[in-house]
Design a protein around this nucleic acid. Structure first.
Lengths: 188, 188
DNA sequence: AATGTGATGTCAGAATCTGACATCAGAGAG
DNA sequence: CTCTCTGATGTCAGATTCTGACATCACATT
């Protein structure tokens, strides 16, 4: 055993999300989060570059996975847009694996501008991962970017629909339905 | 004449952008911006809720205009997506009216996470304005949201292309070309 | 047993942002 | 013309975020 309780980063992330849900993100200070996790404020900043990052799970691995998914889908002959939508569906499945966390995040993030901005930056990284995967499968750059952005557009609308429904339906199903609606829109 | 130079807000906004372009946004302190504008730091915060807002022009009026544009376009019988693209083209025209400011913003914003987040929040507001305009013209909500998000996807890709080209071509033309590419993508 | 390493603590400080109160030129009331 | 009020700005204090520099000490290595 170490000199301190292990998994300080995990305790900090959990404390950040729980406290933010309880009393609001902005009303929660880093000092409180650190105290709840049993460390000092300085240690918090050794695990997270800033306060917002504590409520966002690190998803760099996920981006790599998604890039691979979209690349494979594209190689099987699906259109760039369909391939990107496969990856978005995978993203929904991933989010569904921790439904409680997803729901908490969905409730906390939109009401806080700083977090909303961070979330959108993350979406942009996702977009880049998707277009990168398509490009790796040989799709021309412009086409790849458009497909990725269009798929993310479906994602945003789907998440909004999901919230409108008080998060009652499974997110992957909402994504599938929204993607179908988008297809109809583009054909009509 | 008042007791102080008039247009303190304008001087602050200009100073914020110029200083950020010169030495970087994060390296520019609010105290410096205020000093350059000839006011105190406290006065800065009377004009802008935070530092990031000083480099973003207030565009609430523009959003209203765009909603009107898309509503009119929709009423003339254009498809929701085409109507939304008309509004995006208008947005490009608007940005072109102050090309130097647009270029400065394009150079400063993407490299600063805090500003990038703010920019994306603004895009979401634009998306809501567009889908609102479509809804006002009788387009069903889901369809309106998808059209708005798809049009904004075109906008994002177009701005990226514009930057890739070192901002040499007029933005409205880049938007038109990108929209055409998107149409081809959806048909193919 | 000596030494090194790494996670954490401690301390100081810059920068952002907010609340409370003071100041004073000019506008309007009388 | 004088009085008063208003509104923009200044002044001051303080909470909070975030960073750099150095100290500590259980555990691992040798």
């Amino acid at each position: 055993m170490g000199r301190w309780e292990p998994n300080a980063g995990g305790r900090l992330a959990r404390a950040a999300l729980v406290l933010s849900a309880e009393k609001g993100y902005e009303a929660t200070t880093v000092a409180e989060i650190a105290a709840a996790a049993g460390v000092t404020e300085r240690t918090f900043y050794r695990y997270f570059p800033d306060k917002a990052d504590a409520v966002f799970p690190d998803n760099r691995e996920l981006l790599v996975v998604l890039a691979g998914v979209v690349e494979d889908a594209s190689r099987t002959g699906q259109s760039p847009l369909d391939a990107a939508l496969v990856a978005v569906h995978r993203l929904a499945t991933y989010a569904s694996e921790e439904p409680e966390r997803a729901r908490l995040s969905a409730m906390v993030i939109p009401s806080v501008p700083a977090l909303a901005g961070r979330e959108l930056v993350r979406q942009r990284q996702t977009s880049e991962a998707l277009s990168g995967g398509l490009a790796a499968a040989g799709v021309p750059r412009l086409e790849a970017q458009l497909a990725a952005e269009s798929a993310l557009a479906v994602w945003r609308v789907a998440v909004a629909e999901w919230a409108r429904d008080n998060w009652s339906q499974p997110l992957p199903e909402v994504v599938t339905a929204t993607a179908e609606a988008a297809r109809t829109l583009n054909r009509g």
